[in-house]
């Protein structure tokens, strides 16, 4: 049972603050580190993996500092985001080399290759691998010493749906075995499918933490903005504003449209077509105007 503790850790590069006073505790099971691109997920993972020192604060594994301690790698396995590997090696040679660096041998390497189902291509050069195959060989190299902590930076990037399912199964299994598995992703659905526990990072700050259902609710309960065009904008506005699911409606003369702020997402999505039908108003455009991941996340930060 291994626990990673991040205690008021910040990391800046020159004037840029990548991680800002983050505290979290990652324990056994699968944890998803969710956040938009550039939020500081990789920086955080690099600090947990011992590749970066926190500028302030501390990052430790079972009470021991991670930075500058090579011995932590007996406990930690890392799957980096970057593609670069030793492309001139075959998959098998690569995993064997990784095993040897842990003081292990061919047997362990073969087991890891079997775990990620890469035996069929193990004697091909890595240079010839697809992205998903690379990802799996990287995974094998991280698993070869059966670490109690597994850190994966955007592991599902570039994987096809079948490979994604396979990797998810594998990570679930590892979590169930009591290993501490942390993976980062900028895709909510990915995290939702796999992790029971989620940590959300936005703009370097720790925005939310906990059960994915709670975070999902936070995300769907936020005010949604819609741009709506109809055959009679003013009549529609009048009919909608009386319902508590809307918080504000603006008639945008220039656009010839309504800007609607909905506070109860589910109720509003049911209300709008019903009201239109009852008043014989034709809906011409209904488009969410702030569905970008960034706006979803920034709402979380404010929450």
């Amino acid at each position: 049972m291994s626990v990673i503790d991040i205690d008021h850790a910040s990391r800046w590069f020159g004037n840029v603050v990548a991680v800002n006073d983050v505290s979290m505790r990652i324990g056994p099971g699968v944890t998803g580190l969710l956040g938009p691109n550039g939020a500081g997920k990789s920086t955080l993972i690099n600090m947990m993996g011992g590749f970066l020192a926190p500028s302030t604060g501390a990052v430790s594994l079972d009470g021991q500092q991670i930075w500058r301690r090579e011995s932590v790698y007996r406990e930690i396995g890392i799957v980096p985001e970057r593609e670069a590997m030793y492309d001139f090696l075959t998959g098998r040679e690569f995993v064997v080399a990784n095993a040897e660096l842990h003081g292990l041998g061919k047997r362990e390497a073969q087991k890891a290759l079997a775990t990620v189902e890469m035996e069929y291509a193990q004697d091909r050069k890595i240079a010839t691998y697809s992205k998903g195959m690379r990802q799996r060989v990287k995974m094998a190299s991280a698993l070869v010493h059966e670490p109690s902590v597994l850190l994966l930076d955007e592991p599902f990037n570039g994987m096809d749906p079948r490979q994604r399912m396979q990797l998810m199964d594998l990570l679930r299994r590892m979590g169930a075995e009591g290993r501490t598995v942390l993976f980062s992703s900028h895709i909510l659905e990915e995290v939702e499918q796999l992790a029971s526990h989620i940590e959300v990072i936005v703009a370097g700050r720790h925005a939310a933490s906990g059960d994915f259902r709670r975070i999902r609710r936070l995300m769907t309960d936020r005010p949604h903005r819609y741009l709506v065009r109809s055959s009679d904008d003013r009549a529609l506005a009048a009919a909608l504003i009386s319902d508590p699911s809307t918080a504000g409606i603006e008639v945008d003369m220039a656009e010839g449209a309504l800007r609607i702020q909905a506070v109860d997402f589910l109720r509003f999505t049911e209300l709008l077509p019903r009201v239109a039908r009852e008043h014989s108003i034709r809906l011409l455009t209904v488009s969410p105007s702030d569905e970008s991941l960034e706006s979803v996340f920034s709402y979380l930060v404010a929450a």
Binding site: E70, G77, I78, R82, H102, A142
Partner: peptide, 15 residues
């Protein structure tokens, strides 16, 4: 340059 040194560094081998 390409970052593959991470596979050497993430090992219990003295730098």
């Amino acid at each position: 340059d390409d970052g593959s040194i991470v596979y050497l560094l993430a090992k219990p081998v003295k730098r």
